[in-house]
């Protein structure tokens, strides 16, 4: 119990060995030009590029039902705070056109919508009249997986948001969005970019759909480099999380993939460099819980 509590306070995630990171960097960065462009990683496995999305799709189809419960269990409820932090950094405003990618269950989208409504109320209170931009607000929820979207729609129904025209559900690929150039004010992707086959393409798409002045924000499980905490986190993610996944959703492999894919994801600095390469300015990141998650942000100018 006490060890659980200790882990709980500290969170999870690690930054494995340097060599592994270096390998990952080359995979992430050069898959268009490296010697073997057809392979990409799926957890620790190397798989053909065209299969990764299918495999990831299977993972999320398997876990969709218990997805939110598992998030709560694995992060000990912290993922709610992380998402709140993401939205507060985004600073939504009335009349905003927002796109939340890989946000099938609507977790981030509902928060953005809530923040917009709050900002609207503030504005209305100040002007003593109707807000001029009220009906322009659109929060697009995009996910490649229809099962995840289904879960999100059900949750919207429960929250009484099923008929809100501000919320737009769309099935789509982060690497090829069906939105027009320069049409969005904000782009968020929470715990999603890790699962995308070509991260650089997804970033380019984000840059394409954003307007000048629009912001890109990414919340992602990242790399812990604090000695001691790193070992605890590693132990937690490799021993506890897959077992937990088996217990709750009866699917060990999907959660094994989750912890492996976190290790395969580029380090904070590397990912920041990739965001800058996609054309974003003022790329910054903030580590939460010692790097268990990081929020990267970029500005399109």
């Amino acid at each position: 119990m006490t060890t659980m509590a200790a882990t709980r306070r500290m969170g999870r995630q690690s930054w494995r060995i340097f060599s592994m990171q270096a390998r990952r960097c080359s995979v992430a960065h050069d898959h268009t030009s490296s010697s073997d462009p057809k392979l990409t990683n799926f957890g620790y496995r190397e798989v053909p590029e065209n299969e990764k999305s299918k495999l990831v799709g299977n993972v999320f189809t398997n876990v969709a039902r218990s997805y939110d419960l598992m998030n709560d269990l694995m992060s000990m409820g912290l993922h709610r705070l992380w998402k709140d932090r993401l939205v507060s950094k985004l600073h939504p405003f009335p009349g905003m056109q927002h796109l939340d990618v890989a946000g099938g269950t609507g977790d981030v989208a509902f928060r953005v919508l809530h923040a917009i409504h709050k900002a609207e109320h503030r504005a209305v209170g100040k002007l003593g009249g109707k807000s001029e931009a009220k009906n322009e607000t659109r929060v697009h929820v995009c996910d490649i997986n229809p099962n995840m979207l289904e879960v999100g729609k059900q949750r919207a129904h429960k929250l009484g948001l099923e008929n809100v025209e501000d919320l737009v559900w769309m099935e789509g690929d982060a690497e090829a969005l069906s939105l027009e150039d320069n049409s969005m004010d904000g782009y968020t992707i929470a715990f999603g970019i890790r699962n995308v086959t070509h991260i650089d393409r997804a970033l380019k798409e984000a840059h394409r759909v954003l307007r000048r002045g629009g912001r890109f924000l990414c919340l992602e499980l990242s790399h812990v480099s604090i000695p001691g905490f790193q070992q605890v986190y590693d132990a937690y993610s490799f021993a506890v999380i897959p077992a937990m996944g088996e217990l709750v959703s009866g699917d060990r492999a999907s959660y094994q993939y989750l912890v492996e894919s976190i290790r395969k994801f580029p380090s904070q600095e590397k990912f920041a460099a990739m965001i800058a390469d996609a054309g974003f300015q003022e790329v910054q990141y903030e580590n939460l819980v010692g790097g268990v998650v990081a929020i990267h942000s970029g500005l399109k100018l």
Partner: peptide, 26 residues
């Protein structure tokens, strides 16, 4: 004069210069 010093004035200002008001968040 109309909106005060807080974010709503900044949002309106960003619209005026043709930038997305998202920039206010930065």
């Amino acid at each position: 004069r109309r909106l005060g010093w807080m974010e709503s004035a900044l949002v309106a200002g960003a619209r005026d210069v043709g930038l997305s008001p998202s920039i206010v968040g930065s």
